[in-house]
């Protein structure tokens, strides 16, 4: 399981099936976690995704145990800002 943060500040979690030199990614069984200050984290099912490397800011390895223990309903946070160059 990996969590990727895209250049526009989205957070997508999925199983990393492949990647290449340009950091293009294949994510299986992926979902987006939509953070907002007004309500808990909304999880949107995406399925199989290919993400072009240009749009990837960060890839994180998810610790499944920690992740399962999180209370997403209770998390309130502003969405991440996009990358400014």
């Amino acid at each position: 399981m990996v969590e990727i943060v895209t250049a526009d500040g989205r957070v997508i979690v999925g199983t990393l099936k492949g990647f290449d030199q340009a950091i293009n990614l294949i994510l299986d069984e992926s979902h987006e976690r939509v953070y907002s200050s007004g309500q808990g984290v909304e999880q949107v099912i995406l399925g199989l995704y290919i993400v072009r490397g240009d749009n990837v800011a960060l890839i994180g390895e998810v610790d499944d145990d920690t992740d399962n223990g999180l209370d997403f309903e209770g998390i309130r946070a502003e969405p991440l800002n996009p990358i400014i160059h």
Binding site: E3, V11, A57, L58, I59, G60, V62, D63, A77, L80
Partner: peptide
């Protein structure tokens, strides 16, 4: 402020 990566311990940054 940033709970988005609570379960991440290792990461790759472009």
């Amino acid at each position: 402020k940033y709970p988005h990566m609570l379960s991440v311990k290792t990461c790759f940054i472009r």
